[in-house]
Design a protein around this nucleic acid. Structure first.
Lengths: 232, 232
DNA sequence: GATCACTGACTGACTGGTCAGTCATTTATA
DNA sequence: TATAAATGACTGACCAGTCAGTCAGTGATC
């Protein structure tokens, strides 16, 4: 990661530090199809999409911004109109992709369905919204590169993981009170999510040697944990 | 990953492709303390140790061989006397660190102790031999970089993972026959190891924000799976 | 609606630092 | 002394980030 030259950019730092962002939603409104405004609005998303492809194929270091630019159909300089530097681009990508799922996760924590039923909904949410989605790649990137981006790891922990864990814990606490779930799970909600992590890591590394039926594995897992007549 | 120049090295490819290797054992025998032979024998291990430090701190791409050399107290050229290139160095490191644990894992698969007891031994083996060891870093590297080293991923799958999975499955099959374990586990032995993966990933990314008592989590997990009076 | 000055998004050749890999030379041993 | 081992200055590819220049689009004016 080359150190930025001292008198760095910031010549006209447009959007690199915009707080929120959403990548998939494309066209932004009512403006004429090819007007300057509407094209400009799509640029950022186009670049993020290209960055997702390149970063998830090659990892952070090995990704060349020339390639991102080419894939986005844009000159390299344009990237720097929207993102301060490569690192910011990466972080914004993670933010943009993962922020939207937070709500869904927290909503789950408030439901009062019996756990075994709720568990199936959560599995379904994971498979449809993450595992069968580009978000899987983003989480994989997070796992792979997170260590060298403490800021990003903290963001991810604060904005995504800790919320998911808390929601899970709330849900499990209520279920445990009803005797539907052993108390140990309340202390380590990670145990519920562990197979999801396995799914993501496994599919990235070993899918070709030993494919994994993720849905069935997750189903098996909840069947193991939520045995109706078990000793709590 | 700069592409290796075409007429690449291989000038005198000494050890880069030696099949087996063990990194930690230092002094190799009976030779006079500072003889060339004995020093030469240690070089490879010294370099691997330095490489472990650098790779696990920075990842594959960001690691500079100049730093590895400095840390090993060796000139950069020396590295190329023992390893064909950076990639080979990385792969040999993973090989050297993980090959030794295979035996221990397979031995576990043959025991006929009751599962709940055996499970505690396995947890103990994992914590002592991997989690509290530099091997944790190597596995983390494997997870992070494995995708871009299909050869290495295959090696790891073939020589380590598949053996572990098979051993686990054998063990679980017998336990299931005795009714100690639900049959679903036999189909997805990954479910047993999942929390170990969580431990490694979590400690790498979030330890500072939310420390995790890994031993207790793993204990909680086996208590959840191996409830004595459960319905098989 | 035709003309034109103005704007700023976009471009891409360029710079400067970086680093994997090389090899002529030096050093240590047998 | 002969030889293998080790060295580290060097080369060349490489790429993040820069910035002077271009030109499509805009909107004011006649």
């Amino acid at each position: 990661m080359k150190k930025a030259r001292s008198g760095a950019s910031a010549r006209r730092q447009i959007a690199g530090t915009t707080p929120a962002a959403k990548v998939p939603t494309a066209a932004a409104g009512k403006v004429a199809a090819n007007s300057r405004a509407s094209r400009g609005a799509g640029r950022r998303e186009t670049i993020l999409a290209a960055a997702l492809d390149e970063f998830s194929a090659r990892g952070f270091e090995a990704t060349r911004l020339d390639d991102v630019a080419r894939r986005a159909g844009v000159a390299k300089g344009t990237i720097y109109l929207y993102f301060r530097d490569k690192e910011t681009l990466f972080q914004e990508l993670v933010r943009a992709m993962l922020t939207p799922v937070i709500g869904g996760i927290e909503a789950m924590g408030e439901s009062d369905l019996p756990v075994n039923l709720l568990a199936e909904r959560i599995v379904d949410l994971f498979v449809r919204e993450i595992y069968e989605t580009r978000r899987q790649d983003v989480i994989r990137l997070m796992i792979s590169e997170g260590r060298r981006f403490p800021k990003l790891a903290e963001f991810y922990y604060r904005e995504v993981l800790s919320r998911a864990v808390d929601a899970m814990r709330a849900l499990l606490t209520r279920a445990a009170a009803r005797g539907e779930v052993p108390r140990a799970l309340v202390e380590f909600p990670q145990l519920i999510a562990a197979p999801a992590l396995v799914a993501i890591v496994w599919s990235g590394l070993f899918e070709r040697y030993a494919p994994l039926d993720v849905r069935r594995m997750l189903k098996a897992h909840i069947d193991l944990l939520f045995v109706p007549g078990r000793v709590a």
